[in-house]
Computed example of a mutant assay.
Amino acid sequence: MTFHVPLVDITPYVTGGTGAERAAVARAIDDACRTVGFIQITGHGVPAAVIAGLEASIDGFFGLDLDVKNTYRTPPEINRGYSPPKSESLSLSLGVEQASRMNDFFEAFNVGATAAHYPHVAHLDPIDYADNVWPDVAGFEPAVSAYFGEAARVARTLTDIFADALGIDRAFFDARTDHSLDVLRMNNYALPPGTDVTLDGDLIGMGEHTDYGIVTVLWADRVAGLQVLGSDGSWNDVQPAEGALLVNLGDVTARLTNEQWMSTLHRVKPPVIDGTIRRRRSAAFFHDGNVDALIETLPQCVDPQHPAIYEPVTVQEHIRAKLAGSRAGVRNETADRESARVLSSDRY
């Protein structure tokens, strides 16, 4: 069976389509969430100028000397700032790697929603809603902030579509995302000068993982590297269509739907050509939900034939266990279902 990521035009939800048009979009999204867990969306309304500003900012920051970039590092528990190559291992977020060494050669820069984004909420945890670290790169902060706002709008549009597709009130997601843990991670897959990375058959740009939250909105170069795990255990190359954003579900949504909707495993393995990694850039916006939101399976997704798979957990408990794996090298012991899928894939 040929692996295919569906392409869905969400214009009716962005510019105000008819009820019938929105219903057709919701059906298409529902089918994609049940069968693939990855979607390409067009009609998202993100201006080309905003995307161009994001690209220029990514190039400006990652073009700095490694010593300069390292001045923007933060402690592992603070999901902000710079992550150099081989400082993370995403597969440890699933508890897969037996060794604790950090393998992934990508470098990244994170910004996120701070306590100041949510003045209506008192006493937000300074670890989860940490202030951003802004690099001294011309135009970086306004350009990245502009894209962050657009990606947040798209993510919230998607949760409206999700609610319609699941037949629940849109207030369900609104109540769980009014101070959402939102993070934009800008990734650079290349080998900067001065890094100790060997080009060999085991080289991993970003290890096998599922995303952690409700939904991820991904802008990416149209360069090979992203691979998605199919239902048959095969890894499949995925590139966005021209002008499209990639969307995938996270673990929170899989838990809500009792895995009727899929939090799909994926990884990044950019090609090595003549001993050089072909550069690839991406920016993933993670819409994870309120830190104190309790994630419980929706009643309509449970019946005698399909009992609840997961115990209730707060977003904070779930996200911190995942981050402790990927950023601090602490093997996640709570991801048995996800790790079993990796271990049964063609990688092993």
Rank of each mutant, 00 (worst) to 15 (best):
M1E: 07
D9F: 06
T11Y: 04
T15K: 07
T15H: 08
R22D: 01
A23S: 09
A28V: 00
T35L: 02
V46H: 12
A49M: 11
D59S: 12
F62R: 10
D65V: 03
Y72K: 13
E88C: 10
E88K: 11
L90R: 06
D104Y: 09
F105W: 09
F106Q: 14
F106N: 14
F109H: 12
N110C: 11
N110R: 13
V111P: 04
V111N: 06
A122I: 05
Y129V: 03
V137A: 10
A138L: 13
F148T: 05
G149K: 13
D174G: 11
T177K: 04
P192Q: 11
P193F: 05
P193D: 15
D200I: 11
M206Y: 04
G213W: 05
V217K: 00
D221G: 07
R222E: 15
G225F: 10
V238N: 06
V238K: 01
L246P: 00
V247N: 03
L249Y: 04
G250Y: 05
T253Q: 04
V268Q: 09
R279M: 08
C301F: 15
D303P: 03
H306R: 15
A308S: 15
A308W: 01
E311W: 01
V313P: 00
T314W: 06
T314H: 10
E317G: 12
I319D: 00
G329I: 06
N332D: 14
D336R: 14
R337W: 04
S339C: 02
S345K: 08
